[in-house]
Amino acid sequence: MADYKNEFGVFAERPKVEKKIFDRNKVIAGLVIFLVMVTIPLWQNLGKTVAAPTPNLDTPVIQKLAEKDKKCVMPKEWMRANHMQLLVDWRDNVVRTKEQQVTTSRGRNFVASDKKQYLASLTNTCMECHSNKAQFCDQCHNYVAVAPNCWGCHLETGKKLAEAK
């Protein structure tokens, strides 16, 4: 006769366990409440349409530029996908080099593909052209529900650094 062993001892045969869910109604009610709770964002936004963002390039500084200079530090499509990485890179190069390999003089100038140099600065380079933060930055960020905290510290003013000196 095959003995059945478990941590409580040795038994002649495997104990029969009834196959049923205890407190069936409570369990199901709990599951339903859980499902509703986790899907609340879906229900809330059901039927709502959110207009796609239309970033605006119409700022005084950009208008003043000659037609051939009307371009960003990197191609538009690339910037759309990677601007956050570019900014992190600028930041790490200005404050610290990427791998703690601290050089004696930190890089400040970004060399674009056409060899033109730009000051690596959110406030004094990016925001100088794109002085319309609400139309240019916030619109998209809100649309995709991200909240970068760059402007907690970095100023939005497009005022020229030279003017302040």
């Binding site: 990485q85 570019l86 890179d89 930190r106 400040r108 100038n109 140099q117 000051l119």
Partner: peptide, 17 residues
């Protein structure tokens, strides 16, 4: 880290060392 820009960031010509 995806899409790292191997950024060409150089010291400004006048920077002090």
């Amino acid at each position: 880290a995806p899409g790292r820009v191997e950024a060409e960031i150089i010291p400004a010509p006048r920077s002090m060392k």
